[in-house]
Amino acid sequence: MISILRTIGLTFLHMFRKRETIQYPEEKVVLHPRWRGRIVLTRDPDMGERCVGCYLCAAACPVDCISLQATEDENGRRYPEFFRINFSRCIFCGYCEEACPTYAIQLIPDFEMAEYDRQNLVYEKEDLLINSEGKYPGYNYYKVAGLAAGIKAKGEGDNEEPPVDIHSLLP
């Protein structure tokens, strides 16, 4: 009996507290920068595609909702021929972002993706690619990778010696 009255009392007191419910969509939710929402593909500082088609995001995805095909341009730079995320399957776990060695795939603070037709939740590369470096400005994978792919020549990357002269026997 006492506990029932106490509960009624507590509920009554809550009427004077600050409201948690917000009037969405008129009022927008405050989302923090690391909030895991809609997935995007970002670009390099030179505005080239960051994704190198390494398939690690697809392998990390616990619901297998990412599929892509890697291809190469004439300089040997890898990029995805197609990149598809089935958001009707995505659980926004962020493993793909964690797996990405080039900071290409990023989860951004946006969840407003509702659709009437489930088919519209299948995002292709055109839907995913944004004109921004996202959360990691200034990073260019090809500058730190050994491969020469049109971004820098062999030996010109960060932390690289100039190419070995194989005709020399000097130490």
Binding site: Y55, A58, A59, C61, V63, D64, C65, I66, S67, L68, R84, I85, N86, S88, R89, R118, Q119, L121, V122, E124
Partner: peptide, 15 residues
């Protein structure tokens, strides 16, 4: 670790 089962044919039909 085969990947992309729920996306590789999603462009044709999401089911």
């Amino acid at each position: 670790r085969y990947s992309g089962r729920t996306a590789m044919l999603a462009n044709i039909n999401v089911s």
